[in-house]
Write a protein that binds this DNA or RNA. Structure first.
Lengths: 109, 109
DNA sequence: TAAATTACTTTGACAGGCAGAGTAATATTT
DNA sequence: AAATATTACTCTGCCTGTCAAAGTAATTTA
């Protein structure tokens, strides 16, 4: 299980990337992250909804209520065009971050 | 220039890695990071010295004063054996983090 | 000798992430 | 039918890492 403070800062990217595939609601995203990472990483509820608030405020995503549910009312998020551009930047940034950290980490041992 | 909140959490790794090569002092590390990343990343002074304090408290590094300097008195840091083990973990963790984030980021566009 | 550079320290603020507690609706079990 | 589990979202208050800003001090260069 990866520490969450090491993923910190990349949550926007992960969540946006999932929403960019298709509109999704919070609980679904949480499950999807656990599934795809094989439980090596789990996002905490409080964190997830904080990310939504942040991204919505910046108009990177927008919300609407779904009609069906198997529990509490689902709030779906879709990515805006601003969000798409932002995600694009984040993806580029990620490859730069990898390069930079690898500069130091590679060739160890 | 990479945002520092995206590097956040990896500073311990970067700094420890540099100290593990040889004993180093703060100002030197700061210069070395700028140099190796070609100024794509610069560590802020306040941050650097906060990292030292944190790592020293956890006995991951230890300090001693150097004799020569070209300015203020140099405080050198060396990595402890505990620190070596810790760095080992961090390096492993980094490759896991890369894998996980790539799970989401790859195949975009 | 004044200014620039090298070198370290401290304080207070901010932002992201989290534990914990709570609300609500639907599904399952008893 | 009632109790319990699951699905689904929200809010408050705390913790930690990073940083801007300001300061101290010694050495080098102009």
């Amino acid at each position: 299980m990866v520490r969450s403070d090491i993923i910190r800062g990349h949550l926007d990217s992960i969540i946006l990337r999932l929403i960019s595939e298709k509109d999704r609601y919070g609980y679904e995203i949480s499950q999807e992250i656990s599934l795809r990472t094989n439980n090596r990483f789990q996002i905490k509820e409080a964190t997830l909804y904080a990310v939504f608030q942040r991204l919505e405020k910046k108009e990177i995503i927008e919300a609407y209520y779904g009609d069906v549910s198997h529990g509490g009312k689902r709030k779906y998020y879709r990515i805006t065009s601003l969000g798409k551009a932002y995600l694009n930047e984040l993806v580029k940034e990620w490859s730069e971050v990898k390069e930079i950290i690898d500069l130091f980490m590679e060739g160890f041992e």
